[in-house]
Write a protein that binds this DNA or RNA. Sequence first.
DNA 1: GTCTATAAGGAGATAGAC
DNA 2: GTCTATCTCCTTATAGAC
Lengths: 206, 206
Amino acid sequence: MSEPRDTRSRILDVAEELFSENGVDRVSIRDITKKARVNLAAINYHFGSKEDLIAAVFERRIVPMNEARLAALDAVERTSPMGPRLEDILESFIRPTIQHSGTTTAGGKAFSKLFGRCLSEPSPEIEALLKRQFEPLSERLNAALTKALPKLSRSDIFWCLKFTFGALHHWHLTKDRFLPAWLAKTEDEEQIKKLIAFSAAGFRAT
Amino acid sequence: MSEPRDTRSRILDVAEELFSENGVDRVSIRDITKKARVNLAAINYHFGSKEDLIAAVFERRIVPMNEARLAALDAVERTSPMGPRLEDILESFIRPTIQHSGTTTAGGKAFSKLFGRCLSEPSPEIEALLKRQFEPLSERLNAALTKALPKLSRSDIFWCLKFTFGALHHWHLTKDRFLPAWLAKTEDEEQIKKLIAFSAAGFRAT
DNA sequence: GTCTATAAGGAGATAGAC
DNA sequence: GTCTATCTCCTTATAGAC
């Protein structure tokens, strides 16, 4: 089970690893097919083009991640019919970040870099992909937050959510880089809790 | 004055614009020399290689930006010998972001994308460049924040600063993308103030 | 400093056999 | 579905004339 799998999956796994390690533009389809030990023509056969492969690699992670976020938001809204606490709303979209691009698997480690790359990637295809994947989630979060913080304007909520997402993403992207020698090791779980507290206070101060 | 300039500067200007628009790997030296109306061989003559050109483009912005951050930190420390307020420390590194990669010039707009790209760029040269450019600033900020928030541990300060930097960077990178139709237009100046208040509350809640 | 010409190689994609 | 062979194009970098 650790090696066979079908050609398509092997390509996805290797592509994710290499893309995040070296950047999509610096990885050739030759690099991928060689490492995956599949034929050079397999990528074009299974995915159509390199561009479509990039989208497939990305969607394989982001779709379940955002589904988990929506499910978590559903869950807290069901539990608190009066509207969930701010912290619970924030947790519903922060926690799936580490659970689904988890630090456990090699591919998971890879994904945050790939996502960061997509954010600064100006390709219209990727821009559309991001919009499609995040718009419904963003709408739901904004609605829940508006209910939890009735004194804030919609704009304020939108921008605070952007700050929070930025903090989350940058933490995830660089949590094992640029660390000073004196820094104590901390569990992801603890850092998530800190981020939730940090952001919640930020929202309330606005 | 709007067009002549020397070959070297013309290359830097055009490279910054094209790199951020299309990504460093998707821009060839041919694209740059053509648009800058200089000879194809000029990049290798003036900069040595494409890689060195990328570093030069990046450093041209980041060096003065971080100098401005350090100068602002010096200034608030001089004004408050007992140690500056948390908000003033945060402002000293947040404000230069918009002033130096300013939204005024075309090149400035370009820079935040280029920076985002560098953060998710795994090239060892760029990683070293970032480290060299940010380590002294990070040390200074951590020291000032430790003084302003004596109850926090060094680790907590480090991670909160990372959250803040992430929020700042992501805001800057996406402040004119992924915006819902209903969103009211806001000035950068106002958003900076919101970010300072947001982060300061986050630090104090930790 | 600037230019032309070219070297030397890697890229994505596909036709067509098996 | 898989493979080989190949087409076509574009890349960075440099040698050497002006």
